[in-house]
Nucleic acid binder design. Structure first.
Lengths: 113, 113
DNA sequence: GAGACGTACAACCATTTGGTTGTAGGTTAG
DNA sequence: CTAACCTACAACCAAATGGTTGTACGTCTC
């Protein structure tokens, strides 16, 4: 079964925007390997708790992570589906480029006729 | 030959940032299929010439497109290498997630011992 | 040479972003 | 119960973003 790539431009904007920050990419790495609480994440960076909280919120709005409640903690866990969607778009773009090369080949072949 | 993924965090920030805009992704599609002048691109969008010029500049700073001079025109052409780099990072992230699943499998196996 | 075309770039503006501090509320430990 | 911990959220601020208009300069056409 092939995953449908029905994703709006707005969602893609949020997705790539969320990936366009070093701290957020690092949070993604950590929560892909294993879930972590917001304060555990905050302890890893040289910025305030609230700043890290905002980064997590950006990732969450992009669908890259989800939060689950566990007592007084909120555990953050990455969701690889949105990463796959972003990758799919890049693959689509690369295929456009290959298509250009194919057309170039076709034109060169025509010249030989 | 494998492409080395030596790219700084700052470059990745610019790369994903450049991809996080619908107009810029569209410019990328057009210039992947075939090169286009800045004014030709500007004619395709409902915004000023200068605005499109800025979008092209963002793509250029991220290394996603290059400009060549042809008379009074500047032809914009996409470079798929940076797209491949962004894709590589996403693949790396996805592999981290698979690693988590592997660890989970290992833990479950240990319980059976 | 004159005018039209294509581009670059500066100046300006509203909004968003990424950070801060402070306040408040739910949860756990002693 | 009280104190410490974890989180949420508002208010604020500087800088970046995405748009605009205006000006200037090289290039093509007639």
């Amino acid at each position: 079964m092939v995953v449908r790539l029905d994703i709006t431009d707005e969602e893609l904007d949020k997705l790539f925007r969320a990936l366009a920050d070093t701290t957020r990419r690092d949070i993604l790495r950590r929560t892909l390997v294993g879930e972590a609480s917001v304060s555990a994440l905050a302890g890893a960076y040289d910025m305030s708790f609230a700043a890290v909280q905002k980064h997590v919120a950006v990732l969450e709005a992009a669908g890259l992570v989800h939060k689950t409640t566990s007592g007084r903690e909120r555990l953050v866990r990455a969701d690889p589906e949105q990463i796959a969607r972003a990758r799919s778009l890049l693959v689509e773009l690369e295929s456009l480029w290959r298509h250009r090369l194919d057309r170039l080949d076709a034109i060169l072949s025509e010249d030989l006729e």
